[in-house]
Design a protein around this nucleic acid. Structure first.
Length: 429
RNA sequence: GGCGGCGUACCCAAGUGGCUAAGGGGGAGGUCUGCAAAACCUUUAUGCGCCGGUUCGAAUCCGGCCGCCGCCUCCA
């Protein structure tokens, strides 16, 4: 397998730390609002990677966190006049509702920052002891100048970062790029005791502490949206490697954005659609197929037209399944071979290899889908030739089961045609 | 300003040195059908933003130009 590693900027052979095993950490969401389609993309593409590793007989350990304490959560709690942990509870529940609907599997471990305060404190303490961090009035900052590799993931030098920085100047920091490991609590804010006084963890430290705890000091894959490359993942590398003195992650994988009118969909621009809104109009399988019809690193333009295209494609699949079922029910015993049989056999013979070749090449789901639709067409062509008898039955069933099994990797094509059609009718109402 | 990415048909999209440039949607024509739908077939890029260069050979590598986008600030 080959994967594109953001760290090296190229595709590399994937070699796991331990043969046959793969350890993956994916940055999840901050639970303070409903998820939008961009969150869905990240969740779905990494879900597919995980499923594909399993398909390839890897033993997968998959960790995806929830950020359950930060400024946005605190602000939202104040706005709604409810406790911060009530905000967390509510939006965690909503997250699961959306992701379950989209067929995103639960992670093996789903750690939360507030459940790892001791590990976080321990890590911050180590960083201070080693001289990588300093305390100022109850805040603790990581000193980026102390870490020689700073900028290696986002491919920027310190000078460039400082020159282009638009961050507000905080006089207490030794360098404007220094980032908070621990934040002192202001009046009325949720707080945990620490050697530096009551406070809460900074955003980046939780992912380092939790990934190291659940996957070890070095692990295989760390993923997330491309907008996390800087500063989040850059900071994770700095604090983790400073702390453990070992390489943190072997392969950094990042998914591209969803755009609206060519612009990045984002909270701050306000040009986003929630998963919930889209699910009112489209079947979840349509959303999955739409997202997987583009390579995970490329931008996808979100549009109704594209979703409708995906809907038609999936419909063709289920119509074919139904056609085969009906056909087999009425098919005569008498053996009738047709020339099309050879074509279908030929495409089936090559199918698995081509499917795997596509996904082996940096998870090219778009290409794998193309092969699947080619197989659908070949099955229809064979049906049109009106074959009959045992061998024909066997061949048709093989075609269907091949699509079903490979569909498992993308988690599409898993329902009955009846279920699909029922759901489709519902979306018209 | 710095760094990075992208530009393939009417739309989406795969393809990163070499067979006829996947696949889907849409359009046109056709087969089947009582009609229709579905399905299938044919067709829809001698060309891959533009101009040069390297090479026996380039969408694919190099240089320049044009256009679009992202990151540098919370962000999937």
């Amino acid at each position: 397998m080959r994967v594109y590693n953001t760290l090296s900027g190229k595709k590399e052979d994937f070699i796991p730390l331990e043969p046959g095993k793969v350890k993956i950490y994916v940055c999840g969401v901050t639970v303070y609002d409903y998820c939008h389609i961009g969150h869905a993309r990240s969740a779905i593409v990494f879900d597919v990677m995980r499923r594909y590793f399993r398909y390839k007989d890897f033993q997968v350990r998959y960790v995806r966190n929830f950020t359950d304490i930060d400024d946005k959560i605190i602000r939202r709690a104040q706005e709604e006049g409810i406790p911060w942990n009530e905000v967390v509870r509510k939006y965690t529940e909503e997250y699961y509702r959306d992701m379950d609907a989209l067929g995103v599997e639960r992670a093996d471990v789903e750690p939360r920052a507030t459940e790892h305060i001791p590990e976080i404190i321990e890590m911050v303490r180590t960083l201070i002891d080693k001289g990588y961090a300093y305390e100022v009035n109850g805040d603790v900052y990581f000193e980026v100048n102390r870490f020689p590799g700073y900028g290696k993931l986002s491919k920027r030098s310190m000078d460039e970062l400082v020159a282009g920085a638009r961050v507000e100047v905080d006089e207490r920091k030794r360098n404007p790029l220094d980032f908070a490991l621990w934040k002192a609590a202001k009046e009325g804010e949720p707080a945990w005791d620490s050697p530096w006084g009551p406070g809460r963890p900074g955003w980046h430290i939780e992912c380092s502490a939790m990934s190291i705890k659940h996957l070890g000091e070095t692990f295989d894959i760390h993923g997330g949206g491309a907008d996390l490359i800087f500063p989040h993942h850059e900071n994770e590398i700095a604090q983790s490697e400073a702390c453990t003195e070992k390489p943190f992650v072997r392969y950094w994988l990042h998914n591209g954005f969803i755009t609206i009118s060519k612009e990045k969909m984002s909270k701050s621009l306000g040009n986003f659609f929630t998963i919930r809104e889209i699910l009112e109009r489209f079947d979840p399988e349509v959303i999955r197929a739409f997202i997987l019809s583009t390579h995970y690193r490329s931008p996808i333009e979100f549009s109704e037209e594209q979703l409708l295209d995906s809907e038609v494609s999936i419909n063709r699949f289920y119509s074919t399944i139904m056609r085969v079922e009906t056909y087999l029910d009425r098919m005569p015993q008498k053996v009738k071979a047709t020339p099309e049989e050879e074509y279908l056999q030929e495409i089936l013979r090559k199918f698995r290899a081509r499917f795997e070749e596509a996904l082996d090449d940096d998870f090219n789901t778009a290409l794998s889908l193309g092969y699947m639709y080619e197989l659908v067409r070949e099955i229809n062509r064979y049906l049109d030739s009106k074959p009959s008898g045992g061998p024909a039955r066997k061949l048709l069933l093989e075609g269907i089961s091949t699509l079903r099994e490979t569909g498992k990797v993308l988690n599409i094509f898993q329902r009955s045609p009846q279920q699909w059609h029922t759901s489709l009718l519902r979306s018209f109402l």
